[in-house]
Design a protein around this nucleic acid. Structure first.
Lengths: 204, 204
DNA sequence: GGCTAAGATTGTACAGTGTTTACTTAACGG
DNA sequence: CCGTTAAGTAAACACTGTACAATCTTAGCC
């Protein structure tokens, strides 16, 4: 019975035997916490604790917090699957179908949370804003706009996305009474013609 | 020559002689810093330093950081002056004049910054979101909607403000290419009919 | 005048935060 | 078997917002 066992299994420090899945464990822990508590509300130490490791290890693997966010976001829908569906019914009702997709995305917490996490973070960390912008423009709207073939596609895209982001903010962050309490269908009815105009309509 | 002068002027601690303008000094320092560096980017200690006082004094006067924000925001325009002007030309062009006011507000850093500060803070601090909502709905849009006399005023108001907030985000936070690089006039031309529809138009 | 309550001001300390550095241990390629 | 690299921890750093106590001034009252 030595005072401290001189050579025992699982020493508190140093590398662990066997293949390590730790990096992925951390990513998953971060993904959950970011979605549930937001960017500022999630601490590195909380992520580390949830993954059962030391906080420094998180830095060791991911460099810093924004980067971890970047690597741990899982997008709430697959653009390659969702966007073609928008165009199935032709251009005429594209506004309505986009409005439906947008409101459905905002109204479901499972899909709302990750997007809001990025939106929140993006207000303070330009990298996060850049990530969101890239995902939205390159993966979501670029193919859509290309198929629509309207003039000034970038401006039209920007206007449409702005309206969608704005509604999310108004309904769930600022909580404007009329918007927060309205039925989804009603909001969709109002958004549809506006988005249609932005995407395919003429000015004036 | 005593080791420390036993009773000298301006002792390091305790109340200062004369009337104190410190509270206002702190408020002004906070106002500037919040506008320039945003909510998270501004520390209590920085505010205290700029006002030339100890950090605890800030707490003593304002309780906590969000409260200081609340008391130090100076709104970039006077609603009682600005809103009546919107209605001078009658309902027919209200959309365009609102679009002009909105874009003018976003494009000028002096007026953009304070609003953005609240928007930023509001994403994490519900009190800040509440403040912004209250100012916008009660002081800005309620009188406007009342004069317009449309049905569903709250919903219409929410939709209009959403679009305006969304454009601000798209142009200055997310920086969508088409929106960030477009001329003000062009954006106004697109927004005008949409806002007009939200405020006075019929559904469908 | 003196006394006392309230207000103004600082210093110190606490429990956090993200991140850095130093150290230990295991795996891998020669 | 040796050197390098990767995985892992512990401790510390430079911050943050805020609570608390001590000190000093002013104002009001007797």
């Amino acid at each position: 019975m030595s005072p401290r066992t001189p050579k025992t299994k699982t020493p508190r420090t140093g590398r662990r035997p066997g293949n390590s899945t730790t990096r992925e464990d951390i990513r998953r822990a971060a993904s959950e916490l970011f979605a549930r508590r937001g960017y500022e509300g999630t601490t590195m130490r909380a992520i580390a604790a949830k993954a059962g490791v030391d906080a420094s290890l998180v830095v060791h693997f991911f460099g810093n917090k924004v980067n971890l966010l970047a690597e741990s976001i899982d997008w709430p829908f697959n653009p390659e699957v969702e966007m073609p569906k928008l165009l199935e019914g032709g251009k005429r009702d594209i506004g309505r179908r986009l409005a439906e997709l947008a409101i459905r995305t905002w109204d479901d917490t499972g899909t709302r949370h990750p997007v809001f996490t990025l939106l929140r973070a993006g207000m303070n960390e330009p990298e996060a804003a850049e990530m969101l912008r890239k995902f939205m423009t390159e993966r979501l709207y670029a193919p859509l706009m290309q198929r629509l073939g309207s003039d000034q596609p970038k401006l039209r895209e920007g206007l449409a996305v702005s309206q969608i982001v704005g509604v999310g903010m108004g309904r769930y962050v600022l909580k404007f009474e009329g918007l927060a309490e309205a039925e989804s269908e009603e909001v969709i009815d109002w958004l549809a013609p506006v988005l249609q105009r932005y995407l395919t309509g003429k000015l004036g």
